[in-house]
Amino acid sequence: MDAQHLKDTTVEVTEENGPLTIRGLTVFYDQKPAVFSIDATFRKGRMTAIVGPNGAGKSTLLKAALGIVKPLSGSTSVFGAPLEHMRRRIAYVPQRASVDWDFPARVSDVVGMGLYSELGLLGRFTGAHGKRVTSCLARVGMEDFADRQIGQLSGGQQQRVFLARALAQDADLYLLDEPFAGVDAATERAIIDVLKALRDEGKTVVAVHHDLTTVPDYFDDVLILNVQKVSEGSVEDAFTQDALNKAYGGRLAMAEIDPVPITA
C-alpha cells in the first residue's frame, strides 16, 4: 500500500499545482450550455461544496472535470498535471441512482472494484486486498454487510458502499456527486465523519451538495454556480446571501437557510 502510494506521488505537490484546477470549462448539451466558462480552484486539505439550483450544472462540472463528459472547451489539471496522468490519485463517488443495484455482486465485490486499476488485468486478488476491502467497509460502518447482495441494501447503505469503494483507492482527491441525496440521518453523519477524517489527513474533498442548511457545518469552501460561476472561496467569504440570491433567483426561500456562516 505504501509502495503504491509512493509511486503515485512522484510529482511533488507545491502551492501552484493544487489538487484540482479547472479553467474555462464549458459543456453543452444539445446546444444548451450546461456549464459555461467556469474557472475554479479547489484547495488542498479542504472540503468544498459545489452548490446551485437544479440544472445548474453541478454534476456536469464534476463529470467534465473527470473526463466522463467531454467538454466543449476548457481544461482540468490535477496536482499540476493533466488529468490522464493523475487518475490514480482521484476517487470518484457517483450518484447512487446512476447504477443498477440488481447487478450480481456482493458488497465486498463492489468495494473490490476500487482496486481494479491497481490489480491490472491479471493481478491476483490476494488476502491483503481482501483485508483492505474489509477495513474500508469498517470505516463506513458496513463491515457486517460484506457478503450481502447489493440489491438488498437500503439507499444509505448503498451510498456507504460507494464511499468505501472510493476509500479503497487510497486517493488524494475525492470527488462526490450528491453523497447525501436520499440517505438516512445516520448515514449522513457517518459519511461526513469519514470525509472530515480524510480532510484532516490532508486529502482534498469536493462534493456536489444540495442541502444549503448544512453547508457551513460540513464544508470549508464553497463554489456556487448556476451554469456560470457565481461565487467561490471559503464559506465565510463566498456563502453569502447576495451570492445565493444571484444563483437561485426567486427560488430560494429565505427562511430555509442561514447564510450567516457558523464558525465552529
Binding site: L66, Y92, M113, Y116
Partner: peptide, 13 residues
Amino acid sequence: LLAFDPNYAETRG
C-alpha cells in the same frame, strides 16, 4: 466494471 458502473470505470482510466 463497465457493465456495473460505466461512469466510475471512465474515472479509473
